[in-house]
Amino acid sequence: MEVGRERIYSAAELDAHEGALIEALRASSQQPVTDPDEWLQKELQRNVLVTSVDAVLNWSRRSSLWPVICFPACCAFEFIGASASRFDMSRFGMDILRGSPRQADLLITAGTLTWKMAPQVRRLYDQMAEPKWVIAMGACGITGGIFRDSYSVVPGYNRIVPVDVYVPGCPPRPETLLNGIEMLRQKINTRSIATEGE
């Protein structure tokens, strides 16, 4: 059916569209996003008695973090290593790596981020349902690491998405990653619905 063929975008159009997206994001992300820590402070100031609700909510949230698949580079293999037979991330209820961001609440950024990839990661983050968390894994995730000077590398995921926990290393060993996840769980534990949505 020829009608159908006409509706298909040409490769050149797609490329141009993608290029424009990348350039726009690049121009707007020259500064890091502030780490989402403010609510921690606020929570200390407030004193609303919703603790048992919080306890239940936080318990359920921290006990089944579902990470979304985001495997750009080398760190991915330590992430897979952490979830495979030996280190077995499922112990923490992080059973399933989700292929769809809509079913996930944790983004573990395992690898170098390039500007060409940045719009996709941004979209991935936008599509995840609240509440959501981000762990920046590896030197590349934190600052761009060994590739920081490059013309095509984003110097740190915090240019694109707010990062909750930074896990250093190049690559971080699975134990380090698990430690980072443990820290995130502690952080979730201090969260309160009284300050949510602000």
Partner: peptide, 11 residues
């Protein structure tokens, strides 16, 4: 491709 082009040759 190119989503992981880190410019290793230039670096």
């Amino acid at each position: 491709i190119g989503y992981l082009h880190r410019g290793i040759e230039k670096l």
